[in-house]
Design a protein around this nucleic acid. Sequence first.
DNA 1: CACAATAATATTTTT
DNA 2: TATTATTGTG
Length: 691
Amino acid sequence: MAEAPSTLNPAQMEAVNHLSSPCLVLAGAGSGKTRVITQKIARLLQAGLHPAHIGAITFTNKAAQEMRERAKALVGAKASKHLVISTFHSLGVRLLREDGERLGLKPKFSILDSDDVLGVMREAGGTTDPKIARGWQWTISLWKNNGLTPEQAEAAAKTPDEVVAARVMRLYQERLTAYQAVDFDDLISLPLTLLQRDEETRLKWQKQLRHVLVDEYQDTNATQYELLKALVGADGVFTAVGDDDQSIYGWRGATIDNLKRLPLDYPNLKVIPLEQNYRSTGAILAAANNVIALNPKIFQKKLWSEFGEGEPVRVVECDNEEHEAERAVARIQGIRANATGAHAGATDWKDFAILYRANHQSRKLEEALRKAQIPYKVSGGQSFFDRAEIKDLCAWLRLLVNQDDDPAFLRAITTPKRGIGHTTLAALGEFSGKWKVSLFEALFQASLGTVMSKKAIGSLHEFGRYVNDLEYRARHTVGAEAARPMLLEWLTDIGYEKHLHEGEESEKLATARWGNVIDFIDWIARRCGGEIDNDGADAQGTQGETEKKSVLDVAQTISVILSLAERSEDQDMVTLSTLHASKGLEWPHVVLVGVNEGTLPFRREEEEMTADRLEEERRLMYVGITRARRTLLVSTLLRQKRGREVRKAIPSRFIAEMKLDERTAKEDPRERLKALRAEFAAKAAQAKPAR
DNA sequence: CACAATAATATTTTT
DNA sequence: TATTATTGTG
């Protein structure tokens, strides 16, 4: 967030002090909404509310963590510790852990991530084609987010695909209950059914959370809306903070209907727009306002700032993507070079972002940045640890560390396949649910014999014994030298390499995956220490003889290391990001690339654009523009590669919609000359090391 | 019928 | 660029 003044402006003040009825804060981009939320928390405490009775709900863990930190800074560690600051999903987890038994869910139910879900879908629908399964996963998730039961989905299904998906949905749900597992969507929908069905629980939670604040309210879906409603009760008080102009997640179930419905469902709703922007210059805000003005409005809102006009927003037309990337790089270098003198050192690499519509657009940009030796990071890219094969192995390690980790158990016992099918697992799940023990614990219970075949019990016991044995070995294998063979032995034991080759169509891909596995093994072994560590990329930069650790020790810290590895934010790098991933962030200098018809208002061939779609794309453009604090460069292509042929490309209508000509957007010829020079210099620089 | 070469086609993502 | 669908050939 940009530096906000120490006092609140009148609108913010009103939002903070309005405690008597539900409150909707329409927080424009950069209007200090997080500040309003944290200040309001402080205000509620001052009004005598106990911290444990205040809930702040966000969408991402990152946002929740940031909110907690800011609240802590404001109200102190003691009070902030009791505040309920969490995501919708973790609140759902908490609700279900405490009261899920009323729905027949054991307190230690497992939460499946989307990979796990895909596996269950494949089994339930009897397919090996991941594409089909992904399709099911997608539609079923949307149905669940709209509060549909499998029966309702079956009734609503229109196309043949949907009919199949609805049938899979029922099988899928049955399987989840049998496994005592829930997916992410269930974390919202199950608490909702619970609250709707069980008055005692509803009253308990309504009493527990006396004031709920919801961040990014425009991103809520139908189920989340209902959950919020059930949570606050008919005459409850809450604060929703959001911006209809930044609603860009319609495609995953978020609806701005939730904003429209709010005044109807709560007649005494107080609507407070936050229109003063503390982030961008006048030129940037004007462009943003001009674009978004063309969308039909629910609530009127127009951003303004006290920062003055600033640099005009610039538009460049490029011949092709390579050219565009070069110009983006030249632009960055140009601004950096200009920042000497009065602002010497004031411009770091991290002050720049290049934003685009779709991930694949980052390629040419990465190339150009590498050539120019500019450090960069790509946000939202697939992490090494997100790969299926790494997650498989992590599941095993998690199971070694904590045998009660049921999702890990499910993943480990089914990868590789070891003759334990879903019937056995369902029975085991049912058993563990009944006796309130983990799946692993249930495995050794003698009374299992009553519900299962001898053969199944045999395989289960074999698995259990193997896990115990492996745990013992992991505990006693110390140092990298010993760790490597031990880990390889483990992979041989479970036949993982074979599993990879069988499960993968192409041999090449399987080999690549196996390569990842070896890297991972090596990575763990190195962390067991005891050898000369020359890994310069190591976060700690440790060198020389390291302390020896057991494999189990390393496994224990793996989750910590994972989250640490992602925290490379404080490094001085240019950011490459999709527009979606850029929401909520800001940079002094932003370059928006590939602003073309078909890309930025995204349109698939032979598919007409509905008004809804266009409006969401326009909001995306708006989000992109409002990320910039001081300068904004919008670039568009004149030619675009489509497959093998090069076609002419049409600049996006959004460029005209910014109405830059009203503000002398013509590129300064001196700037153009400078850019050309930088381009030339970059070309010369890359030509030299190449030969 | 199996396999290989060629053509076509590509969003956005958190929990 | 990479993956997938289609067509052609042995």
